[in-house]
Design a protein around this nucleic acid. Sequence first.
DNA 1: TAACTGTTATACATATAATATAACAGATAA
DNA 2: TTATCTGTTATATTATATGTATAACAGTTA
Lengths: 131, 131
Amino acid sequence: MFIRLDFESDEPIYTQLIHQIIEGIAKKNLSPGDPLPSVRAMAADIGINLHTVNKAYQHLKQEGFILIHRQKGVVIHPDGVAKADAAYMKQVQKKLRPFVAESICRQVSEEEFLKQCQELFNEFKEEGEKK
Amino acid sequence: MFIRLDFESDEPIYTQLIHQIIEGIAKKNLSPGDPLPSVRAMAADIGINLHTVNKAYQHLKQEGFILIHRQKGVVIHPDGVAKADAAYMKQVQKKLRPFVAESICRQVSEEEFLKQCQELFNEFKEEGEKK
DNA sequence: TAACTGTTATACATATAATATAACAGATAA
DNA sequence: TTATCTGTTATATTATATGTATAACAGTTA
């Protein structure tokens, strides 16, 4: 797999795994219907416990990124991920809030902050176009 | 004080306190040199433990938002907060990354995402101009 | 039958979060 | 000089989160 974990990070392993898979979808390395390794295979592959992988999968399932068929295994959600609604955008703002506040304290201009976001969008877009 | 905590949130109390104070600085409700309540006064005021407040203050101190004089008490850093450097901006990008990735999965356009950031900047700016 | 799937249960170790007391050294005000 | 307030430190306890380790179960597939 394409998973890269940082075991020195403060960020929990299962959270890193969640983010990696979501990034994979954003970059279109993973497309609707694509299979993911079984919890045991993934765990063995990246050298962590089965339950840590399962925890990540359950989160991804609950948020609609993947489907878990008891028979067919784990796949990227065939219908695609649910589109953002007003509630989701509000949640995004809430999470971005502390970063904006601290940036203002550190005299980061609005333009410079937006540039950081744009760079990230470009990064995902370019990766997506390689496919 | 102007502190509002959500005891139902997943976000730890001391982290919420940190963010509230940083927001206060961003909105210029708190200016360089302004005093903050003692750990005991703050704790009693918002109904939490002294050590939880102390933990927040220590973080704010380490990141240069406040100064702690053994005599004079706690004050917003008189010299202002250190300006963002390249390392800080890199760190910001790293933290924004998961939000951008998930937004892309949910078909949030770059323009819409940037709009959310702009709204936050405007919110802080307007609050700051009230003073 | 054997090997695989997700799932569940139990147990354990460790770290973090939050609270509860208590005490210490230094400054300040009555 | 007391008394009170300051930040700081220490210790203990409780609860929750994280991660690992086994084991088992029900269902599918080769």
